[in-house]
């Protein structure tokens, strides 16, 4: 039997290749910026830097867990071992050539990280995890190529903006104006945390990625970029999926040759 090699995603366009790349955990995401651990903690707003993690149960090794084959198979994450509470980070990704779309962000989270719970909406993607695990994951989500400071937002609530036009500085709309464009430095600066509480000091998340670079990095099909209809493999893949689901729902015996 030939060893299974995951393809991660169908399609043969540039967009499909980017999608495959981001979903493939063996691909190392390029680091583009550095955000200090303390600044990241401040941006998320769940605890004060240096404060101990709050816990919701004692460490697992003190709990005397029952015999369970699943527990033996699955190594708990550090946050689970310690009994951390579950907290979140949430992103809004603009429709204008951002590296990740919501489904890509969610699927990527599932292929790359353990112990995360991710939801997908059109305008936001919440990721929840044990707090110390979350901070580790969040670091990669903000520091690497999958985050554009101007067109991706870290937003706990009032996420409105993914489908709106961009402002005169190329920034995604944010009713709370958590982030602003600093014309002097050319960098995007957060002045409020993700839920909208003002920060003591602004936190820079770096310069926006240039549009021409975003167009190369994006996982969004767009008619003014790479049109979906030109990726015939993609279109036919979805049509086949739909046909198989329909026929199986009507009469599973009709489905042949999968």
């Amino acid at each position: 039997m030939v060893a299974y090699k995951p393809q991660y995603y169908p399609g043969n366009s540039k967009i499909a290749k980017n999608r495959k790349k981001y979903l493939d955990p063996s691909y190392k995401l390029k680091k583009l910026r550095t955000i200090s651990d303390d600044d990241l903690v401040k941006l998320m707003g769940h605890r004060v830097p240096g404060e101990a993690y709050k816990s919701v149960h004692p460490p697992l090794e003190e709990m005397g867990e029952p015999a369970c084959p699943i527990r033996e198979l699955v190594e708990p994450t550090p946050g689970a071992k310690a009994g951390d509470r579950i907290r979140y980070i949430q992103f809004t990704d603009s429709v204008y050539f951002t590296p990740l779309t919501p489904y890509m962000r969610a699927w990527m989270g599932h292929t790359r990280y353990r112990g995360v719970d991710i939801g997908v909406l059109s305008g936001r993607v919440p990721l929840e995890a044990r707090e110390r695990d979350l901070e580790k994951v969040a670091k990669e989500l903000v520091e690497t190529e999958i985050f554009d400071p101007a067109r991706c937002g870290i937003r706990g609530a009032t996420v409105h903006g993914h489908s709106l036009r961009l402002d005169e500085n190329g920034m995604m709309f944010d009713a709370l104006r958590r982030f602003v464009f600093d014309k002097k430095t050319g960098e995007v600066v957060y002045v409020k945390d993700q839920i909208g509480v003002p920060l003591d000091k602004p936190i820079s998340v770096g310069k926006p990625i240039k549009e021409e670079e975003l167009r190369e990095m994006t996982s969004e099909y767009r008619v003014d970029g790479v049109p979906f209809r030109e990726d015939k493999e993609m279109v036919e893949f979805v049509q086949r999926l739909h046909m198989l689901r329909t026929e199986a729902g009507f009469d599973p015996n009709k489905v042949k040759g999968i």
Binding site: R19, V95, L100, T101, P102, Y103, M104, G119, V120, L121, S122, G123, H162, S219, E220, Y221, F228, M234, V235, V238, Q239, L241, H242, R245, T246, A248, G249, F250
Partner: peptide, 29 residues
Amino acid sequence: QLLHKEEMGRLGFYGYDQQDQCGSANSFS
């Protein structure tokens, strides 16, 4: 709905998408 989800990489909200993921299978049932 399935084409839209793959084209834009986004669709609606959780509750919206759920029903359209299983809709193909119940449309002729």
